[in-house]
Simulated assay, not measured.
Amino acid sequence: MSVRNRRAANRTIPADKWAPSKAVRLVTEAVRSWGYSYPQDETLAEAVELLVAGVLGDGGKRISVHLADQDDRLLILALSHQPDPAPASATDKMLTGLAAIAGTASCGTDAAADGRRVWVLMDTSPRMRAASAAR
């Protein structure tokens, strides 16, 4: 996966019980510094916590969180740095949870040499704005 010619942020963090809160803080600070007010903090936190929980389940010693934006959408990705991914049933549950979050345009997972990647693509426009534009 390659992310080029757009704003991006990333951080590698220890795979410990504080990883979700560290990842939420990184993502929220970056998204707000880029001028986005949507998704709301709670929505970002829910998505990031699901992503991080998914890759923590792979059992690595560290994870990384990557963020990029393009065309009023945010790509949030978590990487496990562990080559043996979690069972498919855990992945299915996580993807179902991500897909149910308001503003999710797409989500998915794949395995690479450097571990499992789990990602979500989120809209940065509130749903009401899209309805207002249709009038």
Rank of each mutant, 00 (worst) to 15 (best):
N10W: 05
N10D: 10
N10H: 12
N10E: 13
R11M: 12
R11H: 04
T12E: 11
T12A: 14
I13Y: 04
P14N: 07
P14Q: 07
A15C: 01
A15Y: 05
D16Y: 13
K17C: 07
W18Q: 11
W18V: 02
W18R: 12
W18F: 14
W18M: 08
W18Y: 14
A19W: 03
A19C: 13
P20A: 03
P20L: 04
P20H: 07
K22T: 07
K22P: 01
A23I: 07
A23D: 00
A23Q: 08
V24P: 01
V24M: 01
V24D: 09
R25G: 01
R25E: 09
R25V: 02
V27R: 00
V27Q: 00
V27A: 11
T28L: 15
T28C: 03
T28Y: 03
A30N: 10
A30W: 10
A30Q: 13
V31I: 11
V31W: 00
R32D: 14
R32I: 04
S33R: 08
S33M: 04
S33Q: 13
W34H: 07
W34A: 06
W34S: 09
W34Q: 08
Y36T: 08
Y36A: 11
Y36R: 06
Y36S: 10
S37V: 02
Y38H: 15
Y38K: 04
Y38Q: 04
Q40E: 10
Q40N: 08
Q40K: 15
Q40F: 11
Q40L: 12
D41E: 10
T43A: 06
T43R: 13
A45N: 06
A45F: 03
A45E: 13
A45W: 05
E46W: 09
E46S: 13
A47K: 01
V48A: 10
E49P: 01
E49K: 15
L50D: 01
L50P: 03
L50H: 13
L50C: 10
L51D: 00
L51E: 00
V52S: 03
V52I: 14
A53P: 00
G54P: 01
V55W: 01
V55T: 14
V55P: 00
L56R: 00
L56H: 04
L56W: 05
G57S: 12
G59M: 10
G59S: 10
G60I: 00
K61T: 05
I63H: 03
I63G: 03
S64R: 08
H66E: 12
L67F: 15
A68K: 02
A68D: 12
A68R: 02
A68Q: 03
D69N: 12
Q70A: 08
Q70M: 04
D71C: 05
D71P: 02
R73V: 05
R73T: 14
L75F: 14
L75I: 00
I76Q: 09
I76G: 07
I76F: 08
L77T: 00
L77F: 01
A78E: 00
A78H: 07
L79M: 06
S80Q: 03
H81C: 06
H81K: 08
H81N: 08
Q82D: 12
Q82L: 01
Q82T: 11
P83I: 05
P85G: 14
P85K: 05
A86L: 06
A86F: 02
P87I: 04
P87C: 08
P87E: 15
P87K: 02
P87Q: 05
A88Q: 11
A88H: 09
A88M: 10
S89E: 15
A90E: 15
A90H: 15
T91L: 12
T91N: 12
T91Q: 07
